[in-house]
Write a protein that binds this DNA or RNA. Structure first.
Lengths: 342, 342
DNA sequence: CTGTTAGCGCTTTCAC
DNA sequence: GTGAAAGCGCTAACAG
């Protein structure tokens, strides 16, 4: 039953409504509803029935005001169009335990002013912590240290090493990709990457060179940098194969690039994976599972990243030593572009 | 400057801190900060300086408790992996005016229990309204009418016609796609769709048939239903061309399907758009702008949908006649797959 | 076991 | 102009 105020608008039932209906004091009603054991069973029963009857829901605002904690967290992002923030958000929801914590999602749209604006709004609402999610793995400006709540930077680390940041380990990702190609018997490996201005591109290349060096091998040609697009993947692989027709493995630094590579290989009549193995990066399912053949890829474990970021929000203050950038492991997802299907 | 409580934890400054520092009463400090004009200029100045000095930020919880409104809205979705909720969220943020309203994003993951759980949490937090975002355009179960806040269903309408729902007009979308193919001179048009269990698939097919009938034409073959994937797009178009080699226009009911269609046409040596024009649906940029040629597509204007949903949240109660499902217009985005590039 | 009281931080009368 | 007091809805101490 919905109660109505003087103007006829629906008004949520309050604890005092419940108390009156049950014929007890507000305090007793509170105890009964919160399951404290200092209440007579019969009384509790009456209170709960009264609450049920008028659909009482405790006002979380009042509770938060009293408790000094709200059970809310702000997620401040510039990647709302992007695909990174979503798995991170899901991981964070998981870690907080559904229902215990709710997440305010704010999109700054890459605008520092808007970011400040949102930050202020979040602080006004007394969020218990803030997760800042960037759209690249390049370091981003810190929000500073004079904030009254813990801040954790996810995906894009803070440029201030005394902040707490979690980011995927791109060096390990590059290494992992190469090691997989080596494991499938490839020895003449090329690397087609994206925009060289991205830390992700540079870091993956570092991992690539390290893994090849460990195997006593060298990259076929130079790392090919340009942009994160299918177009570039097509063009780059065309160029690559004309210059180095002997190549038998290609590591593309994104699934988009890899899709372009697959297209060109197909056009040129190279069989994948028999003649050339191809591995992508990001494990973007929509791209990876629809290609011919399906695409092996490196997955950055973003949901896990979100989970860790959420945990750090609540442990950051306890454990100052945690500060700095934590690189989280990535994983290999093998599909048909590196291993023949049976 | 961050204040510290007894235990040494940072404590947010309160209005009474400001008042004490400025040497005025709490009431006066409140008025000064809120720009009421019943305060002497000199006093206001002093209060503002004091507030600045201790980084005072008004506790929105306390304000909300008093005002009875929180300036928050809940976005309840089952589409967090999906791509529909993001533009809708952005549109909603726009409509609410950045900073005025903050959005709680809750992902029910397709689980009714979890949805109830989140719903309850949102109500406890006294959100001013709720937007429910589904992942298909099929009607979904209503949350019911005994809720103390307005609810608007976006993308997936409610199955209860007395609820307020906004959804993209798929019939118009199907019609628009065909009309564009006709406008480019195509007369032998086929339609490759997705899972026939989806309202989206059926509605688009209705628009297709209507548009063709208006032109005195018939579809080439039947509507081909199966699933929303590139694989199906490849397979279906192979089949289509073997049975109806005369086809000169293909409307694919999703961009994924369209990508598959383009692949097969390329394999078979058909030129796009010269021999066959292809149009997709959803205008999913990552797919549409990276294909060869780039893909003409129907855009469901989801950001606008979000904007309208947000508006309805605040007008729904005023205007009961608004209830029912509102179909929002879609738009055509022309690229190289239907019109030759110059 | 139950009720009274005192706030959480803020806004809003209403005297002065 | 300014301040004292009441109260938003709730919880926690403390009496009874």
């Amino acid at each position: 039953m919905v109660r109505v105020d003087g103007a006829g608008n629906p008004r949520a039932a309050t604890l005092s409504d419940v108390a009156r209906l049950a014929g007890v004091s507000i305090a007793t009603a509170s105890k009964a509803i919160n399951g404290r054991d200092e209440v007579a069973p019969a009384t509790r029963q009456r209170v709960l029935e009264a609450a049920e009857q008028i659909s009482f829901t405790p006002n979380q605002l009042a509770r938060s005001l009293l408790a000094g904690r709200t059970g809310t967290v702000g997620l401040l992002t510039s990647d709302l169009e992007g695909r990174f923030v979503i798995p991170i958000l899901m991981g964070a929801e998981d870690a907080f335990g559904a229902g215990q914590v709710n997440v305010f999602l704010c999109d700054a749209r890459g605008d520092a002013i808007r970011e400040q604006h949102h930050l202020k709004a979040l602080l006004n609402r007394r969020v218990d912590g803030i997760i800042v999610v960037g759209r690249q793995t390049d370091p981003r400006p810190s929000l500073g240290h004079d904030l009254p709540v813990p801040v954790v930077y996810a995906y894009a680390p803070s440029d201030d090493p005394t902040d707490v940041s979690v980011t995927p380990d791109n060096v390990a990702g590059g290494r992992l990709a190469i090691e997989h190609l080596l494991a499938t018997g490839r020895r003449r490996i090329a690397h087609i990457s994206g925009d060289p201005a991205y830390a992700a591109a540079q870091d993956r290349a570092v991992g690539v060179r390290a893994a090849l060096a460990d195997a006593g091998l060298e990259l076929v040609g130079d790392v090919m940098f340009s942009e994160w697009s299918e177009h570039w993947g097509r063009d780059a692989s065309g160029l690559l194969l004309s210059q180095h027709p002997e190549v038998d493995g290609i590591f593309a630094a994104s699934d988009q690039i890899a899709r372009g590579v697959l297209d060109t290989l197909r056009d040129l009549g190279r069989r994948v994976p028999e003649d050339v193995a191809v591995i992508g990066y990001d494990n973007w399912e929509i791209l990876a599972t629809n290609s011919r053949p399906e695409l092996t890829s490196i997955d950055a474990n973003l949901q896990e990243l979100g989970r860790v970021a959420a945990k750090r929000v609540f442990t950051a203050l306890d454990d100052e030593r945690r500060s700095g950038t934590e690189s989280l492991p990535v994983r290999l997802v093998i599909r048909g572009s590196t291993i023949p299907r049976r």
